[in-house]
Design a protein around this nucleic acid. Sequence first.
DNA 1: TCACATTTAATTGTTCGCAATTGAATGTGC
DNA 2: GCACATTCAATTGCGAACAATTAAATGTGA
Lengths: 153, 153
Amino acid sequence: MPRKHSAADAPLRLDNQICFAVYSAAHAFNRVYKPLLDRLGLTYPQYLVMLVLWERDDVPVRDIGEKLFLDSGTLTPLLKRLEAAHLVKRTRSREDERQVLIALTPQGHALKDKARAVPQSILAASDCSVSELVAMKDEIVALRDRLNAVIGE
Amino acid sequence: MPRKHSAADAPLRLDNQICFAVYSAAHAFNRVYKPLLDRLGLTYPQYLVMLVLWERDDVPVRDIGEKLFLDSGTLTPLLKRLEAAHLVKRTRSREDERQVLIALTPQGHALKDKARAVPQSILAASDCSVSELVAMKDEIVALRDRLNAVIGE
DNA sequence: TCACATTTAATTGTTCGCAATTGAATGTGC
DNA sequence: GCACATTCAATTGCGAACAATTAAATGTGA
């Protein structure tokens, strides 16, 4: 007779699933970021794009997509919103007319200084030592990369 | 003179951010789940709702939301889709007419058996021992709960 | 050169996720 | 019993996220 909490059901229990842990942690991060990013006028995915651009400017959409694991269906409208906010400029590459190059505007560059406060606040909110966070991050990245390897068959 | 990779910029670098690790790992999980859940006719958030219901049936929307950290704006349309797929039934509670109770249909119950294959496939894809995954899961859940505690001031 | 595949971004349609609002039901203090 | 706040789901609007398709530019082989 199957009981309410049979051992066979353990793998299906919500609290046993690492994917739900990751899923719900991502949402929790988003909620902590929200008020911080509101001050910058950015959403979290837009913030990620800006992080990429602050590292290297004038890159094709495809490069941004590879770093963030996002495709053009997500990035095209997002980048248009960043352009509407005067943070980036989108121009067709002259060497390869298929590519659209994304470059920061002066305002986009300037926003970087304001953004420096964000990681500090997040560190405080996580209530955790830097070394612990780095260790966790490395584990999660390793897991992510193994998962992504499976997707590519 | 700020160089290309100055130490002051380290906290803003994408690869140093645990939140991006979590964010991208969540997407990677989603992509691994996709083909498995397609066979069940479920999306990942729908699968999470079914996990909750397989543990305890006939619960108000609010209870599901608390377990999954989702609100009615997300759950109402999702539950209507599950109802359209004949997996759940939505009925107003007679004790409290504000509440909508979600109950599994026979088909919803039956789907549980097919779902048992899912966690196994995920375990294989993560290419990791169960004990390692459990340890990681506990760390991530602890981090998530600290973040959620900050949100509630 | 010319047919053909590949690359790249854009578009369309569906589903999440959440903030803000609405409206009905319930509970509370007086 | 009645004004008032609270609770709950539903709704609206916006921004991701992604699959599938489209269209243009480029590369490749015969």
